Amino acid sequence: MFFIMLIIILAVGFIVQYLFGFVQIKHFTKHYTELREKGRVAIGRRPAIIRSGTLVLFQLNNKNEIEEARYMQGVTVFSRFKQLKGLEGKKMNKLKEEDFTGYNKLLTRAIIDAQHTFNVVQAGGEIERIPSPMMKAVNKVNKMFTKKGVKKHGLHS
């Protein structure tokens, strides 16, 4: 009986998490679309599990100047986008550390990620995927259980 209740509780939790995640993705899409209608958008992200995850959106004009900026920061799916003031009129590729004073460390890292992403795309490169915090944890556990220095041998023909 205990295991059946545990399975039901886990299933309900999974469904609720899925629904809240879906609502948050719709919220992101709404804000991204609003900015995209005005011009190009640079996105920066700083995922986290325990600390606040952070996402920034920069709407850029044809001179690569920031016209509008929004950010979402929080631990739960109830986080919402807010206006990010102080970077309007600055060129995306010329942002400096002095421009980030007054922002918290996680927001600064997301802004730096947006700048990096912008520079890579401008140079014609591809963006590397940032593993989710859960994947980082899984990878660490996998590394603990794999033997270092052991090479996998394939069959040779």
Rank of each mutant, 00 (worst) to 15 (best):
S157P: 15
G39C: 06
F100G: 02
T108V: 07
A137I: 12
R51Y: 07
N142M: 12
Y18S: 06
A110W: 00
G125Y: 14
L95P: 03
F100E: 01
S157Y: 12
G53L: 01
V77M: 10
T108D: 01
G124L: 11
N93K: 10
I4W: 12
T76A: 08
L87E: 04
L6S: 11
Y18M: 08
I4Q: 14
A137N: 13
M144L: 11
N61G: 06
Q73H: 06
G74F: 05
E68I: 10
T33P: 00
A48V: 02
G154I: 09
L107P: 02
K151E: 15
M92H: 03
G149F: 07
D113H: 00
N61P: 02
A69C: 02
G74Y: 06
M72S: 04
P133D: 02
G124W: 15
F100A: 01
K85R: 14
R129G: 03
A69E: 00
E88G: 11
L95E: 03
R46V: 01
N139H: 12
N139P: 15
R70F: 04
I9T: 10
Y71T: 01
E68Y: 13
D99C: 06
P131G: 10
F22E: 03
T33A: 13
H31L: 06
G124H: 11
D113W: 00
G86Q: 06
F100P: 00
Q122E: 06
A11K: 08
G13P: 02
K147Q: 15
S132A: 08
L107G: 01
G89E: 15
H27D: 05
V141N: 15
F2Q: 15
I112D: 05
G102N: 09
K136G: 11
E88T: 15
K140M: 03
K140I: 03
G44S: 01
M92N: 06
E88Y: 08
K140S: 05
I50Q: 11
G39N: 06
V120N: 07
G89T: 12
E98N: 13
L35Q: 12
V23K: 04
A69Q: 05
Y103G: 04
V150K: 14
I49G: 11
G53V: 01
K148T: 10
R129K: 15
R36F: 10
D113A: 00
K151H: 10
G74A: 04
L19S: 05
K105C: 01
K136F: 05
Y32A: 09
S52G: 09
N64Y: 08
E98H: 07
G39A: 08
G21Y: 01
